[in-house]
Structures are given as structure tokens and as C-alpha cells.
Write a protein that binds this DNA or RNA. Sequence first.
DNA 1: TTGTAAGCGTTATCAC
DNA 2: GTGATAACGCTTACAA
Lengths: 374, 374
Amino acid sequence: MTKMPTPGAPPSPGHDGRPGRPVGLRDVARMAGVSTATVSRVLNTPERVSATLRERVAAASARLGWVPDGTARALATRRTGAVGAVFPTLSHGDFARAAEALQGELRSRGYTLLLACSHYDLAQEHLLVRQFVERGVDAVVLVGNAHDPQTIGLLDRLSVPYVKTFNYDPEWRHHCVGPDNRRAMHGLTRYLLRLGHRRFGVIAQSAHNNDRAAARLQGVRDALSEMGLSVRPQHLVEGRWTIAEGRALFRKIIEKKPWPTAVICGNAYLAVGAVLEATARGIALPGEMSIVGYDDVEIMQELPVPITTLRIRSDEVGRLAADYVVATLAGKQPSTELECEVEIMERSSSGPVPRASRRESVPRRAKGADAGRR
Amino acid sequence: MTKMPTPGAPPSPGHDGRPGRPVGLRDVARMAGVSTATVSRVLNTPERVSATLRERVAAASARLGWVPDGTARALATRRTGAVGAVFPTLSHGDFARAAEALQGELRSRGYTLLLACSHYDLAQEHLLVRQFVERGVDAVVLVGNAHDPQTIGLLDRLSVPYVKTFNYDPEWRHHCVGPDNRRAMHGLTRYLLRLGHRRFGVIAQSAHNNDRAAARLQGVRDALSEMGLSVRPQHLVEGRWTIAEGRALFRKIIEKKPWPTAVICGNAYLAVGAVLEATARGIALPGEMSIVGYDDVEIMQELPVPITTLRIRSDEVGRLAADYVVATLAGKQPSTELECEVEIMERSSSGPVPRASRRESVPRRAKGADAGRR
DNA sequence: TTGTAAGCGTTATCAC
DNA sequence: GTGATAACGCTTACAA
């Protein structure tokens, strides 16, 4: 129960080892021969305290090893300097990176991060946010745009600033930061269309309580329908986000011919699984088929067939989120950059549509400059 | 500055939208026609309140949408219900999983997690711990056994319970939870010795401020020296923990012959890199060489040559850590299971020493039942 | 510049 | 079982 160094030592000794109450601001004040207000000022507005007293206080504080009590300060100032964030999970590399960057940025601005995972459960998320609010967080960071109305209601009612991340939506503006999932996938799909692909497969991440996944799928659909195309039902499969799942779903897609000439995966792990399964089956990439993913993880560029994918700077998302809430708390305008750049990392897993498929895969003449056979 | 729904709404309206102060316990008490003490009791010790009042209070509370103020409660009770954790990073899969599990377990016990990353910097870690302590965390979770003495001193002086994780050391006992890195690597090395390997390469993770990495290396060394063996200097390389780094370091090891017959990697990503580089160079695994890693990540079992490695249940580490601090806070004895099981996942990247190396690689007759040539 | 004293919103110790 | 009321440790007008 007690810890190592001072085996029998009860609660909190002062610097002299006396068992008395923990040292507080009053003790420092007494020792420095000043009022409590002055000690407080030394901490918060040192410039308003004479150098002499400032030093006396600092000395006393150091000598007593005083650690200011944040809860008392929070009660008095009505702000905790804490920000709560709810992520779906941390097992997903991009969320982990974003969380790390968020924490780093918050800390450099004097804030502390409270972190929790909702496991893609909005009810759970609501509970967590509520818990955060009770703990007095100054702001909240959420992932995605889909939330329990009560959650948003609570935040609004209590005037707790919040920001939605990882799914920038032009409609919402100044309330969310991150990549525009739909637009990103739209671009990736157009890239494949430019390569001549017309028959697409999609290994989507389950859109259950995941508006980012839904937006990505929508991006694919939009790009295709602009060309009068769509994904055949048997070529649209969906699952979670493991490599194993990517393999299994890819198998499902190639169950019977004709195969799609391009397979778009909803996230990095699904893409890795798909590529691994394809190469294991001797399917030539990109000779016979193209496979692309969303989000970039290191393994994708190290595999025998490096995978074309969208690079999202998730650490940037974390930083932007921190910037947003901190600015809001300071009453300032957040940085105008709320949307994150995404970049197509073109690698060997994608290429021009296979010769054999050229003719048969163009159902109707498509409009647009880049639609023809080149 | 204000948020969406009620554009011009100042701070905190009651349920009626009046701009007044946020609703507090007193308001609930007044509306329910009871004393503040009773409202508090309904929250904390409902069984000591008559059903009638309990319901009246609950009703009033709900009607006013009261959210208890945690900071005030913390000040009064002298406990925040928060636990601070400092991880080196979250980009490493195992830390991310541990953090997630830690948070989940803490939450189920009513605690909230404050999370921060030290980036393998002990000074930084100290600052973070200090910040946590000021914020009034009830306990702290640290990674590894190596820390700034001041950090531990601070925790001890303020009687803040803490646990060290990810490097169980029998010496420390009841103060750390996790796998025994040294012993785990010792076991893995012995496994390779049993397969007949005598010439080893090591791609170690940098041991700078990383006692886990150091312990792992020590485990290898111990196992070898028990057989009168050691790692040749040119076969011992060290770096961070990316796949690219694993590739580069592997290249260094095979710069000139004779090659080691077995290469032990200090973590999962280094192992993935080594295996990828080896196969890219046409080195047959395990025909010509064996490669093993520490820690198991999904990609390891999905690669064309699945990688033998040690499986550490990092989520278990997180859970154990939560269990430890919560039990300590409750004045109980923590679960007796502080050490985490590790398991050798034997896969295709390792096997018996190549025939060609059998003779030359046994420098002196080794002792032990499993040392001979089978 | 410095000090006095009134909160901040709970909990906890008493009596009743 | 219920109600006054004094803490809890700090900040912050307001005075001096």
C-alpha cells in the first residue's frame, strides 16, 4: 500500500517529513511573508509582482516543494485547461497518430488531453462526452460528423466548444477539420477512370456508425455515376479493418468472373489484405488488376508490390483539431485551414486497365476529356 | 465563437433558456425543496435517502438538466477519479492497444484517463507527470522501469500511486506489470539455439531511454553466453522501429560473409523490414536463414513468409495496469498476476540451422540436453 | 504593488 | 433520514 522509499510514511509530509497536511499556497505565503494573493499572482501574473517578492515566493515555493492544486484552481477560474477527445479506437494507426499529435499540440499550448475510445458506438460516445463534461473539460474533440443529437445538444447547452474531425464537410464549415473523405475518394476513383478502368470492385469499411466510411463509398459512387457507371452488387463487399478481412473480402470479389479491373479499398489494412491475397493467387498487379487503398501506412510502400493509396496526414488532423479548440477557447478565429490535403501516392499496385478488358469494359461512351481510350 | 443551434445564446441558459448562471446543485435542491446535502446524497449514497426525496431530486435534476461540477467535487473529496498515463508514443501498435485497454478498464471502474506521450524523453516525461499531478490525478501509469529520480520522488512525496508497465522485473515486484522482456528474449533465443543456430545477428531497437529494449538485448546475450556464445560486433546493429530501418539494418548485417544463420529483431517492425529485405534479395527463409521478432502485429502472419515472433498481449498490460492502480487506490491488494505471459508464435521465418552451417557454426561443445545436433 | 476577503460548487460533519 | 454549515485550495475584485 505504501510505496518504496519511505516505507512507513503516512500521507503527505512537508519538506521536513512531518506528517501534517500537504503544503498549500497558504504555507508558501506564510513562509514568504506575503499574502495568498501575492503567491497566486506570482503564479499567474508574475509581471504584476515586484521582483523581490517574486523571488521570495519562488524560494519558499521551491523549499516547500509546493505543487499547486489544479482542482482548486479550476473551481475558482471555471476552466480546467483540459480537453476531452473521443476516438473510435486507437488500434487504427491514423487515429493513434492523430491522438498523439493532438496531445502534443494541446500540451504545447498548456492543455491536457483526456482520451477515450467509443468503439464506434454512439451511445458509448455520449456517455464518454458526458463524463468529460462533468469533469469540466474546456472543449471536446470528436471523430466524424455522425453523433447522438443529445451529445451535441449537451455540448451546445453548456457552451462547450467542440470540433468534429476526420471528415471535413464543406457544408458544416468551421466545425470540422480533416480530409474530405468523399472528395478524396472521388479523386482516387477518377484517377482509376483516367487509367481506363470501367469495372470496379469495392472493399468498403463498414459504414455502421462511421460516416467517414460512408463518405468514402459515396465518393466512389459519385465519380462512377458521373461516367454513367456503377459498382455491381457482387463487387461491393464490406467489413471491418483487418488485413485478414481484406483477404477474405477480396476472395469474395473474385469468386466468379468477370472480375473488376480495379478494386478500391476503404482503408489501408483492407488494401494490404487485398494485395496480399491477389499476389498469393498469382494475380499480376497492375497487369491484370489494379488495387488501391485509403490512408497510407508504412507497410504499403514496403510490400513486394507497393500499394497505391491516399496519404492523409492524420497528425495534421490532430494538430488542426488542437488549433481549432484552443483558438476557440481564446475567442480567436481558428486557423482558416480546416481541410486537410490528401495526396494520391501512386505506386505499383495500380496501372492502366489490362488490354484484354479495354473494349468490353466501356459500356457507353463517356463524357469528359479524360474518358476516351487515350 | 458561439455555436450553431442558438446563434446568439450567451453562456449557459437554464432549461428555460434564461441567460442566468449555469444550473448547480443548489438550484436542484431549491426546485426539489430539499437541502443541498440531500441532493449530494442522492448522487453519492442514494441508499441513505428516502425513496420519495430521491425521486423528487432526480426529477428536478433531470428537469434542469443539471450536470454536476466535477472540479468542485474533486476539491471537496480530494480525489479526481482521473489517472494519468505517459507513453513513449502511440505510433507503436502495442502502446496504442495498451492505452486503449487501459482506458477501457479504467472507465469501467469509474476512472478517466489523461494521456500524454514522452517521445522516449525522460525530462519530458517528468514534466508531463508533474502536470498530471498538478491536475490532481489519483494515480499514474508509466512505461518502463527507467525514470528520472525526481519523477518517482515527486510521486512518492505526494503519495500518488503509480505502476511501471511493459517491463516486468521480478526484483521490483508489486510495482510493475507486463512481460519480462529479458526472460522473453532469453526464451526466444534458446528456441533458436535448440534449432541448432550458433551464429546470431541482432537488429536491436535503440536502448536510449528504453530499458525494455535494453532488457531484450540482455536476454539474447544471456542465453548466448550460457552456451559460451556471443554476437559478433558486426552482427549487432541498432535503430528505431520502422520497417525501412529494419531493411537497412538487415542489409548492414549481410554486408559481408559469413552471415549469421539467425537474426533476432528487437521489435515487430524491424522484423518485418528484415524479412521483406531478405526475401527481396532471394534469401530463403528459413532455408538459408531464420529471422524472428519481438511482439506480434497482424502483418507478420500475413506476409508470404509469416514471421516467428513473441506474442505480447499489450491489451493485457493495459488492463493489468488499470487493475493495479485501481486496487491500490481502493486500498486493496492488486491482482497477483503482474507478469504477462508471452508466447512464441512459431511461423515460417524460422527453422533448423541450414545444413551447410551445421559444422562450422558450433564453436565449442555446448552443454545442455537440447544443444547437440539432434 | 500588496493585502483583505468573498466566492467557486461540491462534500462532509455535525446536530436534529 | 434530513438539514445547516464549515471546509476544500485557489483566484480575484476591491481597498489600501
